[in-house]
């Protein structure tokens, strides 16, 4: 079966970890994840600038490894990312900003990608809140 997973919460919120554990279980059962979509504060999970405490799990790097390992389509909402200062090289150049914190495997794209993922997938599962 095909899953689309949307994450609305920042890395320090428990639902980010829940989304990752769910996604890992989806793959472990042989299902497909057609797209991960990070929206609202979820965009921070795609930032390479997040520093986690030594005794805490580093969710942005765990997400990056997961997406790399399984060659997933990891999409970050561009409007949500820009307003939170999570830019890739292209956007940093476009807006004359000194720092870019979003690199491959993440892509910045529009909300239409979430809509399309919902059309392609058998299930859209959203994670957010506490």
């Amino acid at each position: 079966m095909k899953f689309a997973i949307a994450l609305f919460a920042a890395p320090h919120q428990p639902s980010s970890r829940r989304a990752l554990r769910f996604a890992q279980a989806v793959i472990a059962q042989g299902h497909e994840i057609v797209r991960l979509f990070f929206y609202q504060d979820g965009v921070y999970n795609a930032s390479s600038a997040v520093v986690s405490g030594q005794d805490e799990i580093d969710l942005p790097s765990q997400w990056r490894e997961f997406v790399d390992q399984h060659q997933l389509d990891g999409v970050v909402c561009i409007a949500a990312a820009l307003r939170r200062g999570a830019l890739n090289d292209e956007e940093a150049a476009r807006y004359s900003r000194t720092a870019a914190s979003v690199q491959a495997p993440w892509q910045l794209s529009g909300l239409g990608q979430l809509h399309e993922a919902n059309q392609i997938a058998d299930r859209l599962i959203c994670f957010g809140g506490a």
Partner: peptide, 19 residues
């Protein structure tokens, strides 16, 4: 557990997360 969460998400026709 999480594997059962995945199975439940397929058993039901839709999953509605209250965000």
């Amino acid at each position: 557990d999480y594997p059962e969460f995945v199975r439940l998400s397929l058993k039901f026709a839709k999953v509605n997360s209250w965000l």
